[in-house]
Design a binder for these strands. Structure first.
Lengths: 148, 148
DNA sequence: TTAGCTGCAAAACCTTTGCAGAACG
DNA sequence: CGTTCTGCAAAGGTTTTGCAGCTAA
């Protein structure tokens, strides 16, 4: 099922250019796939999809591009409760943070937005004077379809 | 700095025995270290500490024991925002969930409990009919001591 | 006694690094 | 044209697996 991704400030490629990052054919391809993806891809599946359009693209470039996007704060890295090994999953950073719900049984990933979550972040920043840069909330459990 | 760990139902070794899990010398040693730890250990540092008391203990046993404890739901696995590579950190599951705050600059890990967090979990379970088994909240950012 | 744990060695898996050549601006 | 990116090959780090021997109950 498609994942409802939040609205973005603007396309990643455009954002990168405006930040003075060199825009190459490989990077353009990779960020387009990340933004158009219906499921959060891991590095290897991103590579596989990209290779369909550019057979010469190397896996290492995928890792390097993801590293750059993370450093730029333009993608978030997810673990999705390590339901499928130790790989990471990636999504373009949404305008509003959301929670990922990973079903232990069927593997479905749902997203959940909540004003309580926003309040919780505010509470952390206020009470601990902790300036949040990235926040990750993941829950593992049984989705509505997978309860006896 | 010591991490304030929540109160536990009872010692892990005792809990395991009551669940019919075979209690061996290695397991007893490992769960004692996990429970007494002031910082959440990763697999290798757990192994190193344990080896000080039992030089024959193999790293593989640490991974297998951690796997068993995770399956039993007695330890939680943390990523701590991957501040130090891709390893995982472990803590005995507390009676009350808490949030981990990881400082990007100094590496300090703080814990944070909040009734808002409890409410948020309730909201997820109600609105999505998602039965939460494990939940992980991690924030990366700048702690109070590390802001300009 | 016997099911289950453990050490050892090896493999699997994901990710990073060094370097020479290619490409962007 | 210089800086930065990229492919290739190789290494690095973490975690898992197979199997024979050991151990708790």
């Amino acid at each position: 099922m498609p994942i409802e991704s939040g609205a973005f400030r603007r396309p990643l490629a455009q954002e990168l250019i405006s930040r003075g990052v060199r825009m190459t054919r490989r990077r353009r391809l990779l960020v387009e796939i990340i933004q158009g993806a219906e499921r959060h891809p891991d590095a290897v599946s991103l590579w596989q999809r990209a290779r369909a359009q550019d057979a010469t693209l190397n896996k290492v470039t995928v890792y390097r591009t993801l590293g750059m996007l993370k450093r730029q704060g333009l993608v978030d890295e997810l673990d999705l409760m390590h339901l499928e090994g130790e790989k990471h999953f990636y999504e373009a950073r949404p305008t509003r943070d959301h929670i990922h719900l990973a079903c232990i049984k069927c593997g479905r990933i749902q997203e959940f937005e909540s004003s309580l979550f926003e309040k919780l972040k505010g509470q952390i920043e206020r009470e601990r004077r902790f300036r949040i840069e990235v926040v990750r909330v993941e829950a593992g459990g049984y989705c509505d379809r997978c309860q006896e």
